[in-house]
Simulated assay, not measured.
Amino acid sequence: MDDAKSWYLSKSIWGGVVAVLASCANLLGVDIAPADQIGLTDGLTALVAAAGGLLAIWGRISAKGRLR
């Protein structure tokens, strides 16, 4: 995996995002356990990877002029 793609698939990046969102949720009175944060990070990383794959497929199809 090259550096341009690896940043958005990094669990460190998304783990930080989940931690910030969990802190915001705690301010609103919603308690998110650290174990839940790990699951959310894994799910978010998988979602981003799937979205990236779909965008790559769409880019290849549209580059061939099949989608407009």
Results as ranks from 00 to 15, higher is better:
1 M>N: 11
1 M>T: 08
1 M>D: 04
1 M>A: 12
1 M>L: 05
1 M>G: 12
4 A>P: 01
5 K>G: 12
5 K>R: 11
5 K>W: 15
5 K>N: 15
5 K>H: 13
6 S>T: 10
6 S>P: 05
6 S>V: 11
7 W>L: 12
7 W>H: 13
7 W>N: 07
7 W>Q: 06
8 Y>L: 03
8 Y>T: 01
8 Y>P: 01
8 Y>V: 10
10 S>V: 00
11 K>Q: 13
11 K>H: 13
11 K>A: 14
11 K>R: 08
12 S>F: 04
12 S>M: 07
13 I>R: 14
13 I>N: 11
13 I>E: 05
14 W>K: 03
15 G>V: 04
15 G>A: 14
15 G>R: 08
15 G>P: 02
16 G>A: 00
16 G>D: 13
17 V>N: 06
17 V>K: 08
17 V>S: 14
17 V>E: 11
20 V>F: 15
20 V>H: 04
20 V>Y: 15
20 V>K: 08
22 A>G: 02
22 A>S: 10
22 A>Q: 01
23 S>F: 12
24 C>Y: 02
24 C>M: 12
25 A>Q: 15
25 A>S: 14
26 N>Y: 04
26 N>M: 01
27 L>E: 07
27 L>T: 05
28 L>I: 04
30 V>Y: 03
30 V>N: 10
30 V>A: 08
31 D>E: 14
32 I>E: 09
32 I>A: 03
33 A>P: 13
33 A>C: 14
33 A>S: 15
34 P>E: 02
35 A>E: 12
35 A>P: 00
36 D>G: 10
37 Q>W: 13
37 Q>E: 07
38 I>V: 08
38 I>S: 14
38 I>N: 15
39 G>V: 03
39 G>H: 05
39 G>D: 04
40 L>P: 03
41 T>C: 06
41 T>R: 02
42 D>W: 04
43 G>K: 07
43 G>D: 02
43 G>A: 07
43 G>S: 10
44 L>M: 12
44 L>K: 06
44 L>G: 10
45 T>S: 09
45 T>P: 13
45 T>W: 05
45 T>F: 05
47 L>R: 14
48 V>S: 00
48 V>I: 02
48 V>G: 00
48 V>H: 01
48 V>K: 05
49 A>I: 03
50 A>L: 02
50 A>M: 09
50 A>W: 03
51 A>E: 10
51 A>H: 10
52 G>F: 09
52 G>A: 06
52 G>L: 04
52 G>T: 00
53 G>D: 12
54 L>R: 01
54 L>S: 15
55 L>T: 11
55 L>H: 07
56 A>L: 00
56 A>C: 06
56 A>I: 00
57 I>M: 11
58 W>C: 15
58 W>E: 06
58 W>T: 03
58 W>L: 09
59 G>D: 05
59 G>Q: 09
59 G>S: 03
61 I>S: 09
62 S>F: 00
62 S>C: 08
62 S>D: 04
62 S>Y: 00
63 A>T: 09
63 A>M: 10
64 K>N: 11
65 G>S: 02
65 G>V: 08
66 R>Y: 05
66 R>L: 09
66 R>K: 09
67 L>H: 01
67 L>R: 09
68 R>D: 15
68 R>L: 14
